[in-house]
Design a protein around this nucleic acid. Structure first.
Length: 510
RNA sequence: GGCCCUAUCGUCUAACGGUUAGGACAUUGCCUUCUCAAGGCAGUAAUCAGAGUUCGAUUCUCUGUAGGGUCACCA
């Protein structure tokens, strides 16, 4: 296989129809074609199959292009960049289809369909009532009218028999003669059907490998008949297994929550992660590795490793994988991504600039996708990184478990906090700079060293919980030391002071 | 219903006639621990069923079963 691939120039195409969004299944098809093409220094074409004017959604083409580019997939010819085989919109290639249709008419292999939709419908119904499959060729008109373009044009299947073919991913396939019928080449509106158009385009564009979804297996006999009628050589088929919905029951569709690819960008997923994940549904290079870069995928990709059976789209694992890719980012890259998801009311604060780096580091282990930053740590989000929190007495007082049997009143907690504050005041204020003549500076280590003796004395649960909540106001948050380091000495002391006062006031009130 | 495709832990998968059937996600337990994460360790968990071929079948063949696809003037 690989030998011939290297001799003949590989030409692949991705040919979506502009129906509004970029299905992840489609992205995978494009991805496999892309990996294969780029690995073999081939040529990839983007072609838009816009022959159904009814379904076309305006803006789709730009959307598709944007989505594919985001995923890191590029092409050598396409509607946006042109190329020697232009145009790349099927709606602009009508002359080609007409030309080949005429060839078939002249060969006596295509004929006009004179029936009305109602008549066709009744044939179908009759077949259904008789419990046999409907075949148009059983109703083929004796003397079809001359095709003037106002009626559909059908291919005449002269000798319906069993079809056999080879698929590079699936192996040998076959279908009975029932799968073959006189199908429509050109619709009455003058546009070709998919079945016809893609074959003409692939021929004219000299496509060598067709990467396609599983559902096209059933119509392959039709394509084969057309190649034969046209007396042309067919490209290789590479049929991919289906991607199922999370329940594993049905093909992944819009209703099962199949997202548009760009939704993942909105959620703050990394394109490399999506690509990695998608690549591994239906293909695996062997071995135990799972995290691959685009480059690695390209190097490893081979058609014979494509699976036959379908796979589920499991977004729990996608999240894990996305985190793995996020972890590979440098601090600067991570920060850049994260900042696009920072709520504006925080990013405009004057505490923001000095603390965002630290927040980045803190959040790094915790996020599976960047938008999660917005839902982090309870409802309050991450305000407490930038502004002093409000307190809840119950949370501040910590749980029984943390107290470990020790009595704790608001007054005694306030005292403990005061003691901590006293110790922390002794620390120099500077962060990140070496302090001459003293080991301590204001970083999480020194804060820890200052607090630890008190914690040992009064109970770790009480002291560390108390400080942490004094700094964050939250039941759940990063540890107090890193929080203290992040907000700096002045604010740490101020927040402890506030918590202390809060406790005392509460005490007086109650 | 006709035709077609597919079948390894719950999920993604490794294995290309010989393995204690491996890894990952998820899950469970433990460790770490001031909370939440993260991290570390450990555990539970699969060859759809039945025949054949073979010294030996997850792997090859057949049958059954289940799931999926497709039967448009959609792609």
């Amino acid at each position: 296989m690989d030998k011939t691939e290297n001799k003949v120039k590989i030409v692949t195409r991705f040919a979506p129809s502009p129906t509004g969004y970029m299905h992840v299944g489609g992205v995978r098809t494009a991805l496999y074609a892309w990996l294969f093409t780029r690995k073999h220094n081939g040529k990839m074409i983007l072609r838009i199959e816009d022959t159904d004017k009814e379904r076309e959604v305006p803006g789709s083409i730009t959307h598709i292009i944007e989505a594919l580019r985001w995923a890191g997939i590029d092409w050598d010819e396409g509607p946006d960049i042109g190329g020697p085989n232009a145009p790349y919109l099927q709606s602009e290639r009508l002359d080609s289809y007409k030309k080949y249709a005429q060839v078939l008419v002249e060969k006596g292999l295509a004929y006009a369909d004179p029936y009305s939709e109602e008549e066709l419908e009744s044939f179908r119904k009759q077949a259904e009532d008789d419990k046999r499959p409907f075949l148009y060729r059983n109703h083929r008109p004796e003397n079809p009218p001359i095709w003037d373009g106002s009626m559909p044009l059908r291919l005449k299947i002269v000798n319906p028999q069993k079809s056999k073919w080879h698929d590079l991913a699936r192996g040998d396939l076959e279908a009975g003669p029932e799968a073959l019928d006189d199908f429509i080449l050109i619709k009455s509106d003058g546009y070709p059907t998919y079945n016809f158009a893609h074959i003409i385009d692939d021929l004219e564009m000299e496509v060598t490998h067709i990467f396609r979804a599983d559902e096209f297996i059933s119509s392959t006999p039709k394509f084969l008949a057309l190649y034969e009628a046209l007396e042309i050589q067919r490209p290789e088929f590479v049929t991919l297994p289906p991607i199922m919905g999370p329940d594993g029951k049905k093909k992944l569709g819009k209703r099962d929550g199949a997202k548009d690819l760009l939704d993942y960008r909105i959620e703050g997923y990394l394109p490399e992660a999506i690509v990695n994940f998608l690549a591994l549904i239906g293909w695996h290079p062997g071995g135990n590795d799972e995290i691959f870069s685009m480059q690695e995928l390209k190097d490893l990709f081979t058609i014979d490793k494509i699976h036959k059976s379908g796979g589920n789209f499991n977004d729990v694992k996608l999240n894990w994988m996305n985190r793995e890719h996020m972890l590979k980012l440098s601090h600067e890259e991570y920060k850049k991504n994260l900042e696009t998801f920072m709520p504006e009311h925080l990013s405009t604060l004057d505490t923001y600039a000095s603390r965002i780096d630290s927040v980045c580091a803190i959040v790094r282990d915790r996020l599976e996708y960047f938008k999660q930053i917005q839902e982090m740590y309870d409802e309050g989000g991450l305000e407490y990184f930038f502004v002093a929190p409000l307190y809840d007495a119950d949370i501040l007082m910590c749980s029984e478990k943390m107290r470990k049997g020790k009595d704790l009143t608001r007054e005694s907690l306030a005292k403990i906090l005061a003691t901590c504050k006293l110790e922390l005041e002794k620390l120099p204020k500077e962060t990140g700079e070496f302090i001459e003549g003293g080991e301590v500076k204001w970083n999480k280590e020194s804060v820890k060293n200052a607090l630890w003796p008190i914690a040992e004395l009064e109970g770790r649960g009480i002291v560390l919980w108390g400080i942490r909540v004094a700094l964050s106001g939250k039941e759940k948050s990063p540890d107090p030391f890193i929080l203290a380091e992040t907000i700096g000495k002045d604010e740490t002391l101020a927040r402890i002071q506030r918590a202390e006062t809060f406790l005392k006031e509460k005490l007086v009130l109650s």
